[in-house]
């Protein structure tokens, strides 16, 4: 009986896909589904590919535009229908300033936030992954922690090293402040040799990220929604002055 019901529910959806489905089109065009469903109290945001910042990247890059993500976060914070934000990460990194801007926005939201790392949350994806109230990593997902490399407009003077060190310190500080990893451990992972073939650093996989204190738990969608719903309940209670509804 149940199975029959499910089958009949699934069928119209496959028919819909033949028509122009705005969500599918969004994903095809943008790699992102930013449609806010009226019936959902969760705002789901995906951060995929390169985090695009001050420079428009050529079309071979799949990018997440930060100037679009930031107002969306503002809208989600302001919109009364949205009660929680789920951020899904599968990113190879990107612009330091753009990534830190997104991370700061997420960490300062009043509504409950949960991040889930699927596939990869590399480089600047690390601060974004730890910026939420609760972070989850899929068992097979990886996070590459490596030093910031020299690029952009750089002149070869001793001060360059100092500048780079300062840039790196911003990332290290954010990550250590928003997760349980210590600065020593994070830097140890960052400067480890012999782990990566083309760079120094560490590839942290699933449970290792939890072991180092970087991420809260290993899990998937059910853990994410369960945690978010729990936090939404707590949020409602504090909003209603401790009254249980």
């Amino acid at each position: 009986m149940n199975n029959n019901q499910k089958a009949s529910e699934v069928e119209p959806q496959t028919n819909d896909q033949n028509n122009k489905n705005p969500t599918v089109e969004n994903i095809q065009q943008l790699g992102q589904n930013s449609t806010l469903q009226a019936e959902s109290n969760i705002f789901c945001m995906t951060i995929i590919g390169q985090v695009e910042g001050h420079m428009v990247l050529p079309p071979q890059n799949k990018t997440t535009k930060y100037e679009h993500i930031i107002p969306q976060l503002v809208a989600a914070e302001q919109n009364a229908k949205v009660e929680g934000i789920l951020i899904i990460l599968n990113t190879v990194g990107g612009d330091v300033e753009a990534g830190l801007a997104i991370a700061e926005m997420i960490s300062t939201m009043s509504k409950p936030t949960v991040t889930i790392v699927l596939g990869g949350g590399h480089s600047i994806g690390v601060p974004i992954a730890v910026s939420s109230d609760y972070s989850i990593i899929a068992e097979t997902a990886t996070m590459t922690i490596h030093p910031i490399r020299l690029n952009g407009l750089v002149i070869g003077v001793p001060q360059t090293f100092e500048y780079l060190d300062k840039m790196q310190e911003r990332v290290v500080k954010f990550v250590t402040e928003h997760s349980n990893i210590t600065e020593e451990k994070f830097k140890e992972l960052m400067f480890k040799t012999g782990e990566l073939t083309r760079d120094i650093g560490t590839n942290v996989i699933g449970s290792d990220a939890v072991k180092y204190g970087l991420i809260d738990t290993v899990g998937g969608l059910s853990e994410a929604t369960m945690e978010l719903n729990k936090k939404i309940d707590e949020y409602r209670q504090t909003k209603n002055g401790g009254m249980v509804q």
Binding site: Q50, G53, H54, M55, V56, L57, P58, P59, Q60, N61, V92, G93, G94, D95, V96, E97, G99, G120, H122, S123, I124, T144, H146, I148, R149, N151, G152, M167, V171, R198, D199
Partner: peptide
């Protein structure tokens, strides 16, 4: 601007001058 990514910078910026 500093890129912090696991993708080599050359691959990221390849063809940047062709921006329409």
């Amino acid at each position: 601007m500093i890129m912090y990514s696991i993708v080599p910078l050359d691959d990221i910026i390849e063809g940047i001058e062709n921006n329409e």
